[in-house]
Structure formats: structure tokens, C-alpha cells
Amino acid sequence: MHIHNLSQQNSVLNAFISEIRDISVQKDRMRFRRNIERIGEVLGYEMSKNLNYKPISIETPLGTSSMNVIENEIVLCSILRAGVPLHNGLLNYFDTAENAFISAYRHHEKNSESFEIIVEYLACPNLEGKTLILADPMLATGQSMVSTFEALKPFGIPKEIHLVSVIGAQEGVDYVDRHFDKTTHLWVATVDENLNDKGYIIPGLGDAGDLSYGEKLQH
């Protein structure tokens, strides 16, 4: 797998990551969502450098201009609900992409620390021969990414796969590295070293879905 950890070089991305981690800034849900969106835009821009391009001619009021534009047929898939702000950031840059949405959540049997990933809802276009961008803001154990991709397989075989996350744990990075093809690209804003006993990233930022949209009732 090709792993692109953007935190290995300093950029304005550092400011956005700092704010989504900061417990005082996190209280502003709108700013939290916007920062996730902005991180998605940065990740999308960096990813765009690895896509395929074709030349086109454009008629301007004063003449003709030649440009190279993306030729990939992109399908952008996000894991609900935490993935929505990240999805929006990527869609701001890949605005002609087709879109897919999938729900995946951790199911803890009898409140145990172990869990399985449950997929309940899926809406997806044909993926055959296209470029799949699979977005989930928190790459903790990596199980959600793998389970989601397994659920997408009946929709066709993508030509390229790009995984996109805001914060990854090293364990999750290693897990997807083992389970995806070596040609897959992982784009992550930053990587933390540890998971706690509940599978949350440390230091991480908490629950991205709750911080974006409010706490949910557990059932």
C-alpha cells in the first residue's frame, strides 16, 4: 500500500488538526465540521496529484487554451455519519464525482470491549473500472474500512482505490495495509501511535460523529 501521511511535512493542515483536537474549540460544532471539511479539501488536493489526466482545449472570449484535466471516473464513498463533513470537503474538489453512502458502526455484545462492524445501509453506483475514494475520518482499528469495502464488492471492481482519513492509529494503518491490495493509496492527515482498550485513537480527538452532530443515545 502507498501510505501518504501529510503530517510528515509542515503545512497549514497543522492548524486544522490542532483545532479539531482542542477540547475548547471542539465545543463549536460548526467549526469542528468546517475543519474536517477543510482537511478533506487538503487531502483531496494532494490526492489529485496522483490521478490521471487528459488534455482538453477550452475556448475563451479571446482565444483557445489547452489544459490537462482529470480523466478518472470517481466514486466518493463515505461512512455515515461521521464521514459526512469529510465527504463534503472531498466533494468540493471532485465535484463531478458519483457518490455512495454506507452506514457502519461498532456493535459491542453485552457492552464488552470487543466488537464487530455492522453494515446496515448502502447506496452505491456501479464501481466497475472506476476510481473509488473511501472516506472515514477516524482510522482506528481499520475494521470499518475493510468491512465497508467488502460490502461494496458486489457493485464492481474499481480500477483504483484511495482511502482517506483525518486521524489514523498506527494499528489501523497496519491493518488496512494487510487487507488492501498493494496498489491502494492511503491519504491521512496525521497518525497517532496508540488505541485505548475500547479501540479509540489516543490522543485522537474523541468521537468525530458526536462532535459534528451531537451525542447519540446508545442502544
Rank of each mutant, 00 (worst) to 15 (best):
R178P: 09
R178Q: 08
R178S: 11
R178G: 05
H179N: 12
H179C: 11
H179Y: 08
H179K: 09
H179W: 06
F180A: 11
F180T: 04
F180S: 07
F180H: 00
F180K: 01
D181L: 06
D181T: 08
D181S: 08
D181P: 05
D181E: 09
D181C: 07
D181M: 09
D181Y: 05
K182D: 07
K182H: 04
T183M: 11
T183L: 12
T183G: 08
T184V: 10
T184S: 09
T184K: 11
H185S: 12
H185K: 07
H185P: 06
H185V: 10
L186C: 07
L186T: 10
L186Q: 05
L186G: 07
L186F: 10
W187S: 01
W187C: 00
W187M: 01
W187V: 01
V188T: 14
V188E: 10
V188A: 12
A189V: 03
A189I: 02
T190D: 13
T190Q: 09
D192R: 10
D192N: 05
E193W: 12
E193P: 11
E193A: 12
E193N: 15
E193M: 11
E193V: 12
E193K: 14
N194W: 14
N194T: 15
N194G: 13
L195T: 03
L195R: 05
N196R: 04
N196E: 01
N196V: 03
N196L: 02
D197Y: 13
D197N: 14
D197M: 13
D197A: 13
K198Q: 03
K198N: 01
G199V: 00
G199L: 00
Y200L: 05
Y200T: 04
Y200K: 03
Y200C: 00
Y200E: 04
Y200N: 02
Y200S: 02
I201W: 00
I201A: 00
I201P: 00
I202V: 13
I202C: 15
I202G: 10
I202T: 14
P203W: 08
P203E: 07
P203C: 04
G204P: 04
G204E: 04
G204W: 01
L205G: 02
L205V: 05
L205C: 02
G206A: 03
D207V: 12
D207I: 11
D207S: 08
D207G: 05
A208M: 00
A208K: 04
G209D: 06
G209E: 03
D210K: 09
D210C: 07
D210H: 08
D210F: 07
D210S: 08
D210N: 10
L211A: 06
L211S: 06
L211W: 09
L211E: 05
S212K: 01
S212Q: 01
S212G: 06
S212I: 02
Y213M: 13
Y213L: 11
Y213E: 12
G214M: 03
G214D: 02
E215R: 15
E215F: 15
E215G: 15
L217R: 13
L217N: 13
L217C: 12
L217G: 14
Q218Y: 15
